[in-house]
Design a protein around this nucleic acid. Sequence first.
DNA 1: AAGCCGATCAACCGCAATGTT
DNA 2: CAACATTGCGGTTGATCGGCT
Length: 283
Amino acid sequence: MGRSPCCDKNGVKKGPWTAEEDQKLIDYIRFHGPGNWRILPKNAGLQRCGKSCRLRWTNYLRPDIKRGRFSFEEEETIIQLHSVMGNKWSAIATRLPGRTDNEIKNHWNTHIRKRLIRSGIDPVTHSPRLDLLDLSSLLGALFNQPNFSSAATHASSLLNPDVLRLASLLLPQLQNPNPMYASSNLDQNLQTPITSSECSQPQAESTTPTNNETSSFELMNARLDDVASADVLPPLSESFDLESLMSTPMSSPQQDSIEAGTNSSSFFDFGFPEDFILDDFMF
DNA sequence: AAGCCGATCAACCGCAATGTT
DNA sequence: CAACATTGCGGTTGATCGGCT
């Protein structure tokens, strides 16, 4: 059957809106209301597609839109909501009065997402990014060696010593995670390497580690301590760049003004209020 | 001064969901 | 119930701007 075009392409203007066009749209909607977007441009005397008019109105001209920088509180809210809802920008926008889904989406992609990446947080799963290190397979293979010390020495000669060193530094922190990440995400990361396809899916449910998993985790940590105390692993080299390990195609080393500020971000803290009801956000 | 480059964000596109006939 | 129209949404693009060389 085929989809009919949303508007006649011939004679329809595209690109940035002029002040005159904006005024025509505002005047028309003030008098008639939005109504049918398909017929609106003709009635309003605009050479625009109805879809373009709707977008211009909802994202820019609407009187209740709040312009300007996102406040720190707004950013925190976006991060928290995104950790629950994922890329449901319109749903997130309903919790931020005066902000449009488009505005929030843009701000996420240009600021917040990069900030999370630089902080070692996967912006999709909101979990610490260990995927690039693939610690679980690396360490798992290492600790299954009967002669761990020689195996570690051997491995350190084969693998980037900075990565191994980083692993030893991270593990104590991983054992004392933020409540948001308690036991589920981190242990899962350690037990199962994160694949790119998994990263693209929001983590809808968590798993509870078994006693067996916990004990193996402790064993791994104890052995890492042994390795560290025996100076098997050299210190991080000066040229070692964590950023390069954590970087993604969208990441940028440039600092943005928000994180350069003095605010002590608590975006690692995803403690939701007790009256937080997830269903309120879902359709 | 001119050119390059990265960041930003308004606007577009395609698709899915929903409504109407 | 099918076909079509309309609306909403999320991903992507491209124009613009500012900083840097």
